[in-house]
Write a protein that binds this DNA or RNA. Structure first.
Lengths: 260, 260
DNA sequence: AGTGAAAACTGGCTTAAGCCAGTTGACCAG
DNA sequence: CTGGTCAACTGGCTTAAGCCAGTTTTCACT
């Protein structure tokens, strides 16, 4: 009977992946549904278990499925994205709510936010950070604050903030103590640094091994990296933060004027 | 003789991947260098070829290596990112140069830019686009323009622009004809739509199969998706564009004021 | 010297078999 | 009813062998 379909010049693993993908995107296999087990697939399609395994791995790499040891493979559900915008830095929002936009966003989704300052140290800054702060990466240490953000105790992003010594001094910013109402940007204001412009450099990539472990990132999920620079009213950078966030749980939403 | 190293609770494929990764990040294996072949690795470490293969696959998924049929696997070089910013929409930049920011950026990197309008059609808009345009996704068609962006004939991003009929009318925007100096935003201005604010919603994910093919995306590379909305001086949306770009070649760079 | 075919590589993908380690549910003893 | 055990599932990972399809090198013949 010759070749039936046209998508036939492909290796079996991909052919099977295609069929499963079609079932997923068409809705035949809704989010959360269990896929056939590797051994079932193998029998069903007359292929080796390894080949069935590879088919599922393909879907996993595409972020369409997730497999769990001892349980099976499941259609991954796409939870609503967390939308973080420039209003993260709005003073009005900060003062009205007394609560960070992260907490608002998480709460809005019916989950419980938690943030954790994991460490405060003094270190030589990475080259890209030093450049943006306008300091010498070899000579001057900066204050490094590492913050973790959770939703329902699931880690969703990390932010590492670098503050020049000249800015942090002996203020609360340079110590482990709790930052209090309005959090970090309120403390900057206490010191006379009013955030007036921000620069955000955004990239995406696959997570490193450390990030995969720390953020518990499932396979097939990239991270978004945001290198954030805060500028005061004299256009001087006073703080740089590198955010790394799970791309399946986070998105960015900016609204801004177009400058001439 | 007992266990030597501590990182030993891991399967061989991962152990080997770890060693190779260390060599790459330390610089022992610089970008572009050929990795040992699968058969060499197998012999070297006393593992099966499949296991060596899996080790390389791990690096590939992390975006650290790329393998080429018949040639070998190589340490992936990280080309400088294309930095696309809000100045994409700057009128001054548009008028001074007469050239799109994309072309400037690509030329700056010593590569040759090319853009291609692949199709202009009238269709019902996707739900998310319709919502942002404030039109009924069931009732009204919009003009859909599909644009491809190349650097040295390598595709780096796609932009699909949706324009309400009420805006496009019978202007050049609704036809295949060349858009001319200043390109699309100049034509919007001709019609009285001056871009004054933009909204950019950013997410990242693994590419779909179509995107992998169309953009020729190597394995282990995510895409950045930007849903862009242009607002005129009366805060009315007149155009939405969905950009999909290879995350290994593109980055975003925004500088903006912090609004109260 | 040039050229063209073959040999010796490379990765791509599959099969078949096996052991290990989580998970689940049935069933049995208390 | 509770708690524990165990068998039957699940995926995780490896080995060993083989065929195929690209690429590069070699070498003999022109």
């Amino acid at each position: 009977m010759g070749q039936a379909a046209n998508s036939d010049r492909q290796p079996p693993s991909r052919r099977v992946a295609d069929e499963l993908r079609a079932a997923i995107t068409s809705g035949d296999l809704p989010a959360g549904r269990k896929l056939p087990s590797e051994r079932e697939l193998a029998a069903q399609y007359g292929i080796a278990r390894n080949t069935a395994r590879e088919a599922i791995a393909i879907l996993q790499r595409e972020g369409l499925a997730i497999s769990q040891h001892g349980r099976g493979a499941f259609v991954r559900s796409r939870p609503p994205l967390m939308r973080l915008g420039a209003n993260r830095y709005s003073r009005r929002l900060r003062e009205e709510t007394g609560v960070s936009p992260f907490r608002i966003e998480v709460t809005k989704q019916g989950r419980t936010p938690r943030t954790e300052c994991r460490s405060v140290t003094r270190e030589l800054p990475p080259a890209d950070v030093a450049q943006r702060l306008g300091v010498d990466p070899q000579a001057s240490t900066v204050v490094r604050r590492e913050n973790w953000y959770f939703a329902d105790d699931e880690p969703v992003q990390v932010g590492v903030t670098y503050i020049p010594e000249a800015v942090a001094g002996t203020s609360p910013l340079a110590s482990e103590q709790v930052l209090g109402r309005g959090s970090i940007y309120a403390r900057f204001e206490d010191l006379g640094y009013v955030i007036s412009r921000i620069r955000e450099e955004i990239s995406a990539r696959m997570p490193s091994r450390d990030e995969t472990e720390g953020l518990q990132i499932p396979p097939g999920v990239p991270v978004i990296e945001v290198l954030h620079t805060s500028l005061d009213d004299k256009q001087r950078p006073f703080e740089v933060t590198r955010f790394v966030m799970r791309a399946d749980l986070n998105g960015l939403d900016y609204e801004m004027p177009v400058e001439d």
